[in-house]
């Protein structure tokens, strides 16, 4: 993703600032000072705008981050997050609390994103091993053998590495390692086998390791 560094730094500053402001001003959307999620759900069923807004603010980061990881495009991620919330709010009257609200929302978000990827003809999960051979795999000489990431990974670098993953690998990696879905859930969501999900995940991590090692070597070279 181009210019991601500038955006990232910028975003960090905005986040810090808005947290500071919200903390000092008693924002109505702050769950600590307002209504609980359960109350908000009930009130949203009555059509209360403030309740929808509370639910939105409670989950916006998680939903938007998920969308952004999956598509690596902020404008597209905004549209997808918007669509996910709208789908949820349209069905909120049917929510009976069998599963956690957040689980329901995240599942819905994943479906919205996958639908979009499919619409665009992007592989949701690469079923063919050939895909792995075709994509721009980093050269072996960047060393998986004797180089170690040594205990810490820069979050921004990890983000950039994830952005470089082919869509199929990225889907499984985001769902499993970032979002915490289990392989059986992923298999069900994306429509692949559990074994396939596991092998995609493993390959995604190997690729990320290569990317990260490469980035680190480049950084060392340029100072």
């Amino acid at each position: 993703m181009r210019d991601s560094l500038g955006k990232f730094v910028q975003r960090k500053e905005f986040e810090a600032a808005s947290e500071r402001l919200a903390a000092g001003k008693g924002d109505l959307t702050d769950p600590k000072q307002g209504i609980t999620e359960a109350e908000a759900i009930e009130q949203a069923k009555q059509g209360r705008e403030a309740a929808f807004e509370v639910l939105y603010h409670l989950h916006k980061r998680r939903v938007y981050s998920l969308c952004l990881r999956m598509v690596s495009n902020p404008a597209q991620a905004e549209d997808l997050a918007q669509e996910a919330f709208l789908q949820l709010f349209r069905k909120i009257a049917t929510f009976r609390g069998e599963s956690a609200f957040s689980t329901w929302l995240h599942r819905m978000t994943v479906n919205v994103v996958l639908m979009q990827l499919r619409k665009k003809g992007l592989p949701v999960v690469s079923l063919e091993e050939t895909l792995a051979a075709n994509d721009e795999a980093p050269k072996k000489e960047f060393g998986t053998k004797d180089v170690k990431l040594t205990g810490s990974i820069d979050r921004l670098q990890l983000q950039r590495a994830i952005d470089r993953l082919p869509p199929g690998y990225r889907t499984v990696f985001v769902l499993h390692d970032i979002e915490g879905f289990e392989h059986n859930e992923i298999a069900q969501i994306v429509g692949c086998s559990i074994g396939n999900s596991k092998s995609q995940l493993h390959k995604a991590r190997l690729k990320l390791r290569d990317y990260l090692t490469f980035m680190r070597a480049e950084k060392a070279k340029t100072g």
Binding site: R11, I153, I178
Partner: peptide
């Protein structure tokens, strides 16, 4: 690989959508 996996978890809710989304 374990490190990558555990660090990835930190990315779960880091991004703030623009106010226009709401």
């Amino acid at each position: 690989l374990k490190l990558i996996s555990s660090e990835a978890r930190q990315l779960a809710a880091t991004e703030e959508p623009a106010p226009r989304v709401w």
